[in-house]
Nucleic acid binder design. Structure first.
Lengths: 232, 232
DNA sequence: TCAAAAGTGTTTTGGATACACCCATGG
DNA sequence: CCATGGGTGTATCCAAAACACTTTTGA
């Protein structure tokens, strides 16, 4: 009654929908592929997962390789495994989204050689994408829309110091609708996760707005339940 | 510049957290494994995905093989890919949950030979499980708790005709808290997705309650947005 | 002084909650 | 006639939504 350990190996990939906010627009990071399949196509940043890393670790690595960033809010949102989604065979892909602050990171050089270049593309101008990446993007976008409605994650996209109007604009762009200024401020301040700074906006030709900062400590106090995977 | 199609093959599995409601308790379907690894252990019903089927199709097939049921509400909720989660190598698993009506289906004979038997186990008495199935169960349970709070899916677990008290009990068991009878009825009837029948409960030694039925047509009218994958 | 955005409260509405008694039925 | 659950309405609270004017600043 011995048990023969046949060794099995799964090949799969991770694809990331990386959101950034710049010039008043919501953008995602796309690469131009430098290898087959879909050479020269635009695609979501993604790659095969190494044999010795967990999926979460792979997602972090890929984000790091493409942006140099660590400690970014990132979440797995769906796994795509339609037959025929990959021309080379049966490859399923686990999709993650991330929200990053692209202050000063506007120019990104891909570190992996599988991409020619990486660029930020407005979600309104997304070109035809490789594989089923259009579908992956859409589902990821849906996901963050829902998410920010009940969990104030949008800070991740803004510079460290921001004005309430900037924050509101971001919400308006993601949700694709106008919000009332007074109600927005009331609600967002009621969360108690913003710290008002003794500092004002500079270089604007109108009344300068107060700057605020996200208080990560208070945030995790109120939203730890949402973030933990095993609460009871 | 020819492109050599190296054929890649991914091996992965699907595991299902199948919820049922019986004798006032929320239960899940567990199998007793008949093969290595984890022979003789309890486990979530799950299996390797065939080469020629999509993940969703595999989930449906596995549910069918274990219960004979089709057309059940089922949803992918997470993919687990920790290193070492499978003793035979790198296998990731895509987890689904399902909610089924186990009226008359109490005794289930597994069709696959990989399981000795299948049984309904109260979520309060779950034995030690194979692989990382405990974690998968917990995450699935979290998921349905959240889900039924904003989307009335609980009908899937009840017999076709049910009383409002039965429905309320089910909610109470899933959410693990007492609900107010009047408020519950007000809210659930306000959805407008229940059809009142000209029929009453039988065989009870107290005033018989009205029976209701879930109106699937109205349901999909109000919740189509929630269910579709690509709304804008 | 003007253009542009900052900043600020009150009222209304709707949904969620809290709460207690009479009714119908079978045994 | 009694035990058991069935069935019902109102008052309160709170969060969300609607809504408009004054202030500050740089050009």
């Amino acid at each position: 009654m011995t048990y023969l350990p046949i060794y099995l190996n799964s090949i799969f990939s991770v694809d990331c929908v990386i959101f950034g906010f710049d010039e008043g627009e919501l953008k995602i990071l796309l690469i131009e592929k430098n290898e087959e399949p879909y050479k020269d196509w635009f695609a979501l940043p993604g790659h095969l997962v190494n044999k010795d890393e967990s999926i979460d670790a792979a997602a972090e690595r890929i984000l790091y390789e493409l942006t140099g960033l660590k400690g970014i809010y990132m979440e797995q949102f769906y796994t795509f495994g339609e037959l025929g989604r990959h021309p080379q065979g049966r490859i399923i892909t686990v999709a993650y989204f991330a929200m990053i602050r692209l202050q000063g990171n506007k120019e990104l050089q891909p570190i992996t050689n599988s991409a020619k270049k990486a660029s930020w593309v407005s979600i309104k101008e997304i070109p035809e994408l490789a594989f089923d990446h259009q579908k992956i993007f859409e589902k990821g976008f849906e996901k963050i829309k829902n998410k920010i409605s009940y969990q104030p994650l949008a800070f991740e996209l803004l510079p460290e110091k921001f004005t309430l109007t900037q924050l509101q604009n971001l919400y308006e762009v993601i949700l694709n609708k106008k919000l009332d200024k007074r109600n927005f401020r009331k609600k967002i301040l009621a969360y108690g996760i913003l710290k008002e700074l003794d500092e004002k906006q500079k270089g604007v030709s109108y009344r300068a707005a107060k700057l605020y900062k996200f208080d990560r400590r208070k945030y995790s106090k109120y939203f730890q339940n949402e973030l933990s995977f095993s609460k009871d």
